[in-house]
Amino acid sequence: MVLLVSTVTAVRAQAPAVDPAAAARGKGIFGANCSFCHGAQATGTEQAPNLLRSPLVFQDKGGDVLGPFLKTGRPTLGMPSFASLAPAQVSDIAAFLHQRLTEVRGKRLPEAALLVGNADAGRAYFNGPGKCSTCHSPTGDLAGIGTKLQPLALTTAFLTPQAKPEQVRVTLPSGEAVSGTLKFMDEFTVALIDSSGTYHSWVRSSVKSVDVTDPLAAHKEMLPHYTDTEIHNLLAYLVTLK
């Protein structure tokens, strides 16, 4: 415990501090240039995303990522260039955004703070009660995952993986079945795209059955069962897969 606490203290000391004066200047610059689309609080609008969830903002230090980005903008997505902003103005905007991040999310530690688990216990969980080895292999699909993904991305990858196309099989009253990639389903309709690329849809009350295979079902089913220690151990194991 003593070791853990001192480690955390050490990493906290490394966390970059925001200069309040720069953040205050940045708030004004942001208000004049950015808030109309990104909102006064930088939390986004219909037109433009929440900057407090932006990977670019997360990675930025003192404007080093935002500066080059603002030079060109992202015209294809409607984000204009702000090349006229001086470097000092960009770093003030960055200070404002980092202050907002701290306000909204609290003080952040480096991702190494996630690594408190036991890798051996994590391996046992992977091959045992976690059932990870049913679909995944440390030398196959997960080879090098500890290098490819940082600890937080790795945690979210197994807890809340990105949605993948679901497969569906619709059985008609005649007994004929049509299978494909699920395009849409609610309580009343189901739609799929079959292997030839053709779109089909049905009113659900007119078909015999609809069977969906969600590739993430196993991940979703685990959520009520994980203990936090199991999550920490599993992460500790996965980061060893270099």
Partner: peptide
């Protein structure tokens, strides 16, 4: 569900 951590920034929820 969400993952509440004070480390890093990221996406935490289904």
């Amino acid at each position: 569900w969400a993952y509440f951590t004070t480390a890093g920034y990221g996406r935490f929820r289904f």
